[in-house]
């Protein structure tokens, strides 16, 4: 019974997100501009610097997984803003009066954000091909890469919802979000191998879920080296489980 209610709410939340996306398609295109610039400008310029050890992969190809993930995770990290807005209006109060458990709202929202991330990536993907990035032509690998993208984006959305339940105002939330996003990107293997980093940054990178996601997506889409992929998936699943639980627990606080 209660489980059905919760499942229904999750699907409804996903549908809501899709309908919003349908009504505001420009958002998804404008959000694609920045990652495309990363690839086209930064990737092209930096590919002339031959000092970054990419195992013989062209630099633009090397950073494509990181840029793809960064752009979707960026959306997820600020997903909590929607929750803050829904809290300021009466939407959350009303959702919490519906017959579904609180974790359904959190997980439904996180999954919805993951789906949005996949749509976002699907727009950048063909542009990357046009820019000359060579993807591994294995549909299973590509599918697995998108699953990874979905999982890690959902996890970061849950993290964002968790932050939203602590920082109840827009300004404070934005502050935390901004502070999180850049270190997240730079303290990962998105733009360069971890081995190039100073030791303290390396230890952060090892704890950064984005590192594992980038590693998996790079292996599956670009290098074809999938030896670490199972470990990467385990790391991201562990992150998702922990953050879903923490966010669900703290979600109650948001309307008090």
């Amino acid at each position: 019974m209660a489980f059905n209610d919760s499942l229904r709410e999750m699907f409804a939340m996903i549908e809501l997100e899709m309908r919003r996306l349908k009504h505001d398609r420009t958002e998804i295109y404008t959000r694609a501009v920045q990652p495309i610039l990363w690839l086209a400008v930064y990737g092209t310029v930096m590919s002339h610097v031959r000092d970054i050890p990419t195992n013989g992969i062209p630099y633009i190809d090397y950073i494509t997984p990181g840029v793809l993930l960064q752009s979707t995770i960026f959306v997820s990290v600020f997903y909590g803003l929607t929750i803050v807005w829904e809290r300021e209006t009466g939407i959350l109060k009303r959702l919490l009066v519906a017959p579904a458990s609180r974790y359904a709202t959190v997980i439904g929202r996180a999954i919805a954000s993951g789906v949005r991330a996949v749509v976002q990536a699907l727009i950048i993907f063909p542009v990357a091909i046009l820019l000359g990035v060579k993807f591994i032509a294995n549909p299973i690998y590509i599918l697995a890469a998108f699953i990874m993208l979905f999982m890690v984006s959902g996890g970061f959305a849950a993290l964002s919802i968790f932050v939203a339940s602590l920082m109840k105002t827009r300004e404070r939330f934005m502050g935390i979000g901004q502070a999180m996003i850049m270190p997240l990107f730079f303290a990962s293997n998105a733009l360069y191998p971890i081995t190039l980093m100073p030791p303290f940054l390396q230890s952060i990178a090892v704890l950064n879920p984005l590192t594992y996601a980038v590693d998996a997506v790079r292996g599956l889409m670009i290098s074809g080296d999938v030896a670490n992929v199972p470990v990467d998936f385990m790391a991201v699943i562990a992150f998702d489980v922990v953050i879903f639980i923490v966010a669900s627990i703290s979600f109650r606080k948001i309307i008090e």
Binding site: L16, R20, H23, D24, T89, G90, I91, K93
Partner: peptide
Amino acid sequence: VPQEMSVWTDI
């Protein structure tokens, strides 16, 4: 129906 506005305005 809460005191504050409680519908999604973008759909």
